[in-house]
Simulated scan of single mutants.
Amino acid sequence: MARWQMPDLPEGPLRTFKHELHALHGKAGYPSARNLYLAVGKVVSHTKIHHAFIKPLLPSWGVVEVVVEQLAVQVRPRLDADTEIVRFKELWDEAHDSHTPMASIPAPRTGEQVDGPASGYIPQSFRARPVVAANNGLIYQVLVDLHKAGMSTSVPHVAAELERRGQLELCGGEEYLYECLRAAMKGAYEAGLSIPEFASLNARKVRDTAVARRERLASLLSPHSEADQGLREHERVPELHPHRMHPQQT
C-alpha cells in the first residue's frame, strides 16, 4: 500500500496529531482510503478519509474516530480500539484548542445561519453562532428515516446521510451533532433517565411549550382576557422550557 505524504505543518499540537495519525496508518500497513472507506461501513467518504491525512487542517472528530478504530484493529498485534480512540481524542482536543481564534469574523446577528468551512473543522468562532432552529428538523427527519430503514443512528451515520442530502453544513456540521449528543447524555444522566426516555420527555416539553405559547397569545388577544390569566399563561412558558424563552424575556 502507498504511504501518504504528511502535510507541512509548524511545530505544535496539530503537527503532533497528524504525525501520530500517520504513524498509526503505517502500523496498520498503509491501507488505502478506499479500503478504509469499506472497512468503516461507508459512513465516511474515501475522500474525507484521505484528506484527514494529507490536508494541513484538523479533520472533524467523526472522521478521526471511525478511522482510528479501524486502523487499531488492523494493526498486528491488534491494538485496543477504545484506548486508541481516547488517545487520539486527547490529541484532537489539544489541536482544536490551539487553533488561533478568528477574531476578524464579526459577531453573529440574531437568526444568522452557520456555514462552517468545507474541511469539516468548525472553529469555535463559527460554532458559537446560532444554528437556525428549524434546521434541527432536518436532523430529526434523518434520524427517523435511518431508524425506519433499520440502520444505525450514530453520529457518523447521521452525518453521512445529511452530507448525502446536502444538508450537513446547513445543520451546523458534525461538531454540532456531537454537541447535541453530549447535551442529551448530560441531560439524561442528570435526570436519571436513559437517552431515549430523556429525548421523549424533552420532546413532550417542547410540544407543551408550543401549546403554552399559543394559549398565551390567545389570552393576550382575547377581549375578555383577565390580567391574572394572562400572567399565568406568561409564566407557563419558562417553567416548561426555560432555554426556549425569547431572548427579550430572559
Rank of each mutant, 00 (worst) to 15 (best):
A218S: 15
A128W: 07
T83R: 10
H19F: 09
V44W: 00
V67L: 00
A95T: 08
G111Q: 04
R164C: 02
V158M: 09
D80A: 04
L201Y: 09
H51I: 08
L201K: 10
L181S: 06
L170I: 07
P130I: 06
D115C: 05
V142W: 02
E235M: 12
R204M: 07
Q229R: 12
Y37R: 11
H157M: 13
E239K: 15
V75G: 10
T47E: 15
E175W: 14
R236T: 10
L181Q: 12
H224C: 06
D208P: 04
E112L: 08
E215D: 15
A128Q: 09
M102K: 13
K148W: 07
G230V: 02
H50F: 11
P77A: 09
V114N: 01
E233C: 13
A203C: 12
R129H: 02
P242F: 01
L168C: 03
Y30V: 05
D80N: 13
A218R: 11
G62R: 03
G230P: 05
M102V: 13
A160K: 14
G172K: 00
D145N: 13
S219P: 02
A199T: 08
S98R: 12
L138Q: 02
L14Y: 00
K148C: 07
S225Q: 12
V43P: 09
Y37Q: 10
V237M: 00
P31K: 08
E11H: 06
A118S: 11
K27L: 14
Q124A: 14
H50Q: 13
E169N: 10
A128F: 08
H243L: 11
C180N: 07
E179W: 01
H46I: 02
Y189F: 11
V142S: 07
R78C: 05
N35W: 10
S98G: 10
G172E: 01
S60Q: 12
S45V: 01
S32G: 12
L146R: 15
A218L: 13
V68E: 05
R78Y: 02
T16Y: 00
P223A: 07
F17Q: 11
A107V: 07
N136A: 03
M245F: 00
N135Y: 14
S194I: 07
T16F: 00
R34S: 11
N35Q: 05
P123H: 07
H241P: 04
V68W: 01
S222E: 08
V64W: 00
H147S: 11
E174G: 12
I49G: 01
H234F: 14
K55W: 12
P56F: 04
V131C: 12
D145A: 08
L79N: 08
E163N: 10
A128C: 02
H99V: 11
L143I: 05
K48L: 14
Q124Y: 07
K89G: 03
P31C: 04
R244H: 09
E161W: 00
L58E: 10
P156M: 01
T47W: 15
G120F: 00
